[in-house]
Design a protein around this nucleic acid. Sequence first.
DNA 1: CATATGAATATTGAATTCATAATTACTTTT
DNA 2: AAAAGTAATTATGAATTCAATATTCATATG
Lengths: 227, 227
Amino acid sequence: MTKILQRNLYREVADRIGDLIEHGELAPGERISEKQLCDRFGVSRTPLREALKVLATEGLIELLPNRGARVVRLTLKNVKDTYDLMAALEGLSGELACQYISDAEIAAIRQLHDTMLEHYRNRDLMPYFQVNRQIHESILAASNNDVLQEMYSNLSQRIKRVRYSKKMTERYWSQAVKDHENMMAALERRDSQSLGQILRDHLCNKIEVATLAGVIDTEDDKSVANS
Amino acid sequence: MTKILQRNLYREVADRIGDLIEHGELAPGERISEKQLCDRFGVSRTPLREALKVLATEGLIELLPNRGARVVRLTLKNVKDTYDLMAALEGLSGELACQYISDAEIAAIRQLHDTMLEHYRNRDLMPYFQVNRQIHESILAASNNDVLQEMYSNLSQRIKRVRYSKKMTERYWSQAVKDHENMMAALERRDSQSLGQILRDHLCNKIEVATLAGVIDTEDDKSVANS
DNA sequence: CATATGAATATTGAATTCATAATTACTTTT
DNA sequence: AAAAGTAATTATGAATTCAATATTCATATG
């Protein structure tokens, strides 16, 4: 039985704005006009402003008192900080997963793992990423820690827009696959410590940071140029 | 020169409600009446409702569509999950701190550490906790990771109200002090790995969980009894 | 010509009003 | 008297209105 989720208007609006940010329709640093968005979504300012407050709390936009809202501009440091944090959370998810995961769930992840290897052999980047993601999500789910999952998903949300542009050099890619081999092994023997360590050190995240320099929000966009 | 921080009304209200929750004036599970709080704070429903949305995002209350808001009821699992997460974050803070901390900052923490030992020898529980807290906060600050600090403070906020009631058995207390000795040593030789591991395993959190069973939100309060 | 001052405009902050859903109280029926 | 149904009340969701604060633009001044 899936629970009926009655969506509030403000939550709907917040998600929509989140999408706009993710897809770059609202540029980093760009001033967000309430009126404009009200017209666009066909809602009044009340739910829209509630949505802005929520998005600010979630770290996607920032509110300047009496001067409206703007999309958070991601700095290299900011993204790096977020990745460090996510790596730590993944480590924890691995440790916990080892304690709670069932044989069936491990088997399912093994399946995903093998599929991923197949994609790697064929150098199918996008399918590889997709399955890769599923593996990490499965481990996260197996951690049986709701707070962890909530926090991870929030962090993930924040950097989604820079995560799209991933480039993989062969060297990093093969290392990532090796990491995954070790992960799979640690998981199958339910070695909490090992899996935690591997996931914390897993290069995926740190690799990207190296390639991120090129996609980080710069000053040369629609943003207003104030201190 | 310290900049004037112009606080929004909604943020002010959110903090005030947060205090009410922390100090138990708003009981767990208790229905939050908008009108009542509006009268209490002397504000209209608009900023109050914005505050509620934010508090819900921060995990302090939950919103039931068309049925108002209520204070989140902390379950044992919920608190345990949060502690696990905080332990992981502390571990990360330790790892990072080792990379960035200055000699002066280490010296300052050493000072706090020695003060804490003094309180321990005198069995002054409250001063001990206070300094203990300062030590952890100092390491967190030295981590130089804003996102981490933001997340940690959010989690801390959520469980503040059950954290107040701490009991320390002699056995756990002495173990905690030993942990701190090891922490201090690892920090002084800037041993990232060790400090991270020690902080992740640091018993403080887990100890409390054992004693928590007694202070977790129960059903027998002002709450409405619905599923 | 650049900068400063002030009025006009636009935008945000907050209160009020209107609409809708939920809760309560009351009546009716069995 | 208990249950069910209906009306009245109350609370929430959203739009509108009013007030305060920025921003813009024109004008004046050095």
